[in-house]
C-alpha cells in the first residue's frame, strides 16, 4: 500500500543527494542535507523502522545542522570550482554494477521467508512479552539481547567525543588553556549575534523546557513506544544547544559547565558497564539483568534496561553538548585572534 509513496520519496531522496554533491555553496548544501535527512526519516517510517526514524529525526533536525554550520563558520563556506573527473566516475560505476549484480541473488524486498527473518528475530519477538513484558521489541534487543553491542556503541560515542576534545579543546599541555578558557573567551563575544532577535529569545525560554520535558518522556517511555536513551539524549542535548545558540555560550556554561559534562560523559558509560558488573556480583553473567531482582526475573530485566538506557541517555546528552561547546568555543577563540596561522597556539 505504501509502495508508490516510497517510490516518490526515494526519488526526492536521490534528487537531494545529487544536489548535495552538486551545490558549490556549502551552506546551501547543508540546507539541502537537512532536507535529505528529513526524507530519510520519512522513509524509515514507511519501512516500519520507527525507532530508526525517531533517531534520524532527532539527530537530523537539530544536531547535524548545527555541527555542519559551526564547521562552516570555522572554515570556508564555498567550494572551489572543480571539473568532473572520469576515473572516479568509472570506479563508482564499477562498484555500483558489482553491487547490483550482488543483489540479484538476494531475497526480494519484504520476503517473509528471507534468511534474515529465520534465525534470531523470531526468538526476540517471542521473548518480548514472555521474558520482558516490554512492548517495544527494539528496546529489548538494544538493551538486553544485544547489550554488548550497545555498550560498545556507547563507548564509541565517548571515544569520539574525547577525540573532538583533544582536537579542538587545545593541544598538548593546553589543559590550562583548554575548554574552560576558550568558553570563557566565547562569553565576551557571544551575546552579539542573537540579542537583537527578541522573538527568538522569548520563544526559546518557552520551548527549551518543553523540549527537555519531551526528552524525559522519550527516555522513560521508550519501553512502550519508540524512544530510548539514544533518542532522548539527542533531544535533551538539542534543548541545551538551542539555549547555547540563542543566549550565548557563557550562559549555557552557567547552566551546565563543560567539566560537569565531561564527568557525565564518563559516568553514563560507567552506569552501563556497572549494571553489567552488578549482575556479575549476583551470580549472573555480564549484562544479564534477570538476577538483579531476587523475586522476579522480569522485574530484574526491567530494572536493568532502565539503568542501561539511563546510562546511554546521559552519555549521549553530554557528548552532544560537549561537541557543541568545542565547536562553538573554537569559533569565538578564532575570531579573537585572527592570526591563526601559528600551529602551536591552540
Amino acid at each position: 500500500m505504501t509502495f508508490p509513496i516510497e517510490a516518490i520519496v526515494f526519488l526526492f531522496l536521490l534528487a537531494t543527494a545529487l544536489a548535495v554533491t552538486h551545490l558549490r555553496d556549502l551552506f546551501a548544501a547543508a540546507m539541502v542535507f537537512g532536507v535529505f535527512s528529513l526524507l530519510s526519516a520519512g522513509l524509515f517510517t514507511l519501512m516500519d523502522a520507527v525507532d530508526v526514524a525517531f533517531t534520524e529525526a532527532a539527530v537530523g533536525a537539530g544536531i547535524s545542522t548545527v555541527l555542519i554550520l559551526s564547521t562552516l563558520a570555522l572554515t570556508d563556506p564555498r567550494e572551489h570550482q572543480q571539473p568532473v573527473r572520469f576515473a572516479p566516475v568509472a570506479v563508482v560505476l564499477l562498484v555500483g554494477a558489482a553491487l547490483v549484480y550482488g543483489t540479484l541473488d538476494m531475497p526480494y524486498y519484504g520476503d517473509p521467508t528471507a534468511p534474515i527473518h529465520k534465525h534470531v528475530a523470531p526468538e526476540y519477538i517471542e521473548g518480548a512479552m514472555t521474558d520482558f513484558g516490554i512492548p517495544n521489541i527494539v528496546t529489548n534487543v538494544l538493551a538486553s539481547y544485544r547489550g554488548y553491542d550497545t555498550l560498545g556503541e556507547t563507548t564509541v560515542v565517548l571515544t569520539a567525543t574525547v577525540g573532538v576534545m583533544l582536537l579542538l579543546g587545545g593541544l598538548g599541555g593546553a589543559r590550562h588553556r583548554g575548554d574552560a578558557e576558550v568558553v570563557e573567551a566565547a562569553g565576551d563575544e557571544e551575546p552579539t549575534p542573537m540579542d537583537r532577535v527578541q522573538v527568538a529569545r522569548v520563544s526559546t525560554t518557552v520551548l527549551a523546557p518543553l523540549i527537555m520535558l519531551f526528552g524525559l518522556y522519550v527516555q522513560f517511555h521508550g519501553d512502550f513506544g519508540p524512544g530510548g536513551g539514544f533518542q532522548a539524549g539527542v533531544i535533551f542535548a538539542s534543548a541545551l544547544i538551542l539555549h547555547g545558540i540563542v543566549f550565548g555560550l557563557s550562559s549555557l556554561k552557567r547552566v551546565v559547565s563543560p567539566r560537569f559534562l565531561e564527568i557525565g560523559l564518563a559516568a553514563g558509560v560507567l552506569i552501563y558497564a556497572g549494571t553489567g558488573v552488578a549482575s556479575l556480583f549476583r551470580d549472573g553473567t555480564f549484562l544479564d539483568y534477570a538476577v538483579l531482582d531476587h523475586h522476579s526475573a522480569q522485574h530484574g530485566r526491567h530494572l536493568g534496561i532502565l539503568l542501561v538506557e539511563a546510562g546511554v541517555g546521559i552519555t549521549v546528552t553530554c557528548a552532544m553538548v560537549l561537541i557543541f561547546f568545542f565547536f562553538a568555543g573554537r569559533r569565538a577563540a578564532k575570531s579573537e585572534e585572527p592570526g591563526d596561522r601559528d600551529r602551536r597556539v591552540a
Binding site: 537539530g62 549575534p193 542573537m194
Partner: peptide
Amino acid sequence: VYALVNFAGTVAVLK
C-alpha cells in the same frame, strides 16, 4: 520531535 527540534535547527541556521 520534528515540531520541537526543528526549531533548534532553524535558529542555528539564522544565527
